[in-house]
């Protein structure tokens, strides 16, 4: 047995020489893209990106074929194509985020997130008035929609995956059809079915109902996928100890799928957080706080964005961009909180 201490190594990772070659091929590709963009009519960021990418594809393949085989090149080509696909998505998301942050941050100030529009108008100079009331409105609407659609969606998913009753086929079909409902139709439905026929008038609650129509299919379908991933062994293990199906589902299946069910909720919230159309007829607009969900009109950040953009003055357009930024931040905080809550209860 050796007395000297042995150093752990990872022979499967890239050697310094490999890294040097990778760096070299990237540097060379950058150079090529700069040269080609300079001497040819192809211009713009996309031209840089594509020329760089294809130059890198060729150079790296040459490098790989030197030390490996045609199979190795095909393997690395496949992984580079996945990289290309994800870069496109990243570019799209990145551009949107950049546009929102770049334009939104100019109108952001303390007043914007601590005041309402009660004493101000969309046309006032930036710095006067804010959208705190709309933040509350959005949170209230999301809360109402979550309270209704998460239980409904998860129960529906449980019916479809655990009970598998006679109505499963029909329900599955309806859920799928519902996920294709245009959001404005959800708002019109609530308007036609409730506001026109009953004494109830536009309120946060009715807005929440309209959002529920959009959120339930997302929650149901995601929850269904997640519940299907719970191994059948676990259900059988529970049932084999004499548990009823209800107890097995409640104490074994649902806890096993917990983090996935939180994801289902998050995806559902993501579906509705930015909706404007269903709220136009069902929530109305309001320039201050309305904490009563059942009475009086209210507003939400997307509605503020819609109104401000339509008003068309530089100040109101600036307010719209800032409101989009605020909406993104609010949604981000919600998601992080939901994840943290989920992992905390997991540990316990």
């Amino acid at each position: 047995m050796s007395t000297t201490t042995v150093k752990p190594v990872r022979p499967w990772t890239a050697t310094p020489k490999d890294r040097l070659m990778t760096g070299l091929s990237i540097a060379l590709s950058v150079l090529i893209s700069v040269v080609i963009v300079a001497v040819t009519p192809m211009k713009g960021k996309l031209a840089y990106f594509f020329i760089f990418f294809f130059a890198w594809l060729v150079l790296d393949s040459l490098f790989i074929i030197r030390k490996s085989s045609a199979k190795g090149v095909r393997d690395s080509l496949a992984s580079k194509i996945t990289l290309l696909g994800s870069s496109f998505v990243l570019m799209a998301v990145g551009s949107i985020l950049w546009a929102v942050v770049y334009r939104g941050v100019k109108g952001l100030n303390i007043a914007y997130v601590t005041q309402t529009m009660r004493q101000a108008s969309l046309f006032d100079p930036i710095g006067k008035g804010g959208i705190l009331h709309a933040i509350f409105g959005t949170l209230l609407l999301i809360l109402i929609a979550v309270l209704i659609s998460v239980p409904m969606g998860i129960l529906t998913a449980l019916y479809l995956t655990e009970i598998k009753g006679k109505a499963s086929g029909l329900i599955q079909f309806l859920v799928q059809a519902m996920s294709g409902v245009p959001s404005v139709v959800a708002g019109l439905f609530i308007y036609a079915a409730i506001i026109l026929t009953t004494p109830l008038r536009a309120s946060s609650f009715l807005g929440g109902l309209a959002l529920t129509i959009l959120m339930v299919p997302t929650v149901t379908r995601t929850a269904q996928e997640v519940l299907n991933l719970v191994p059948r062994d676990l259900r059988e293990a529970g049932l084999a100890m004499g548990a009823t199906q209800w107890k097995t589902v409640a104490l074994v299946v649902v806890p096993a799928a917990r983090s996935g069910l939180i994801t289902a909720t998050i995806l559902g919230v993501a579906r509705i957080a930015g909706e404007t159309a269903p709220l136009l007829f069902t929530v109305g607009t309001f320039d201050s706080y309305n904490f009563n969900p059942f009475k009086g009109e209210n507003t939400a950040i997307p509605v503020v964005v819609w109104r401000a953009l339509n008003s068309g003055t530089p100040e109101s357009v600036q307010r719209a961009w800032s409101a989009i930024l605020v909406l993104l931040i609010v949604v981000l905080i919600l998601f992080v909180a939901a994840r943290a809550l989920g992992s905390r209860t997991m540990k316990k």
């Binding site: 042995v6 150093k7 752990p8 190594v9 990872r10 022979p11 499967w12 050697t15």
Partner: peptide, 16 residues
């Protein structure tokens, strides 16, 4: 991570 060699027909399979 690992250390050492595994030789197949005398050739190290962990060789770079």
């Amino acid at each position: 991570s690992m250390a050492g060699q595994v030789l197949l027909d005398g050739k190290d399979i962990y060789e770079p």
